Simulated assay, not measured.
Amino acid sequence: MSQKPAWLTTDGAPWGRGRARLVYDNPWIRVTEHDAVAPTGAAAVYGLVEFKNLALAILPVFDDGTIMLVGQARFPAQDYSWELPEGGGPLGVDPLESARRELREETGLEAAQWLPILEAQLSNSVTDERAIGYLATGLTEVEADPDETELLALARVPFREALDAAMAGHMKDMLTVAMLLRGYHMAREGSLPGALARAMLS
């Protein structure tokens, strides 16, 4: 991992947190409203969505450079979304264990090799949701076990085709976009085995 640039070591004034009020709570999220003090010193009211799971994404790459994508209807945007396999893992559970479960449930795949390639904050102005992404290789087929609310479609496509579709705006899930770009950067910069990188970039 490269050394952190000097400009990244400078922290500004933080937000101050005062009294918090619970607005909404369910098994997945908690919404709270906080009396706050902005870094400028101004008084403010801040709504925060707190997540009870860690977001997980998997970039499953076959030896021939193809990847597996998952298609499903998404409730918030009321659209159909093609994405990498994604899901949530309880905060107290090893993220890799949860990622293995998500890959198996959604795609019917298991991976022999797992490499963490991304840590991200998702929508960090209003939520505390964190994400971890893994590159999964050495893939073999097992029986899929989707959640009872998920009606999933699968597509095995070339990595570059998926990346190009994301860059053209046809895939809008931001964690998928970030993972594809991270995979591309690693393949270009020599951070992946040569044969795999060449297959992904071809």
Rank of each mutant, 00 (worst) to 15 (best):
V31P: 01
E97D: 14
G71A: 03
Q78H: 14
L8W: 03
R101F: 13
L181R: 06
E189T: 11
R188V: 15
E102V: 11
V37D: 14
D35L: 13
L181A: 04
A187E: 02
E189G: 09
P14C: 06
A168K: 12
Y46C: 12
T127D: 05
W7K: 06
K52R: 12
Y80I: 07
R101I: 12
M200W: 10
D63G: 09
A195T: 12
V142Y: 01
A73M: 13
T137R: 05
T10Y: 04
G194C: 05
D94R: 15
A38Q: 13
G88N: 07
L109P: 04
R104L: 10
W82N: 00
E83A: 02
G133I: 12
R104I: 10
S191N: 14
L59W: 02
P14Y: 05
E161P: 03
P90M: 04
V93K: 04
K52P: 01
E97A: 14
G41I: 12
L154W: 02
E129T: 13
M186H: 04
H185E: 13
D145W: 06
D128E: 06
D145E: 10
S123H: 15
L22P: 03
Q72L: 15
W114L: 10
A178N: 05
V37F: 11
A38G: 01
T149Q: 04
D164H: 12
L152T: 05
G190F: 05
E83M: 07
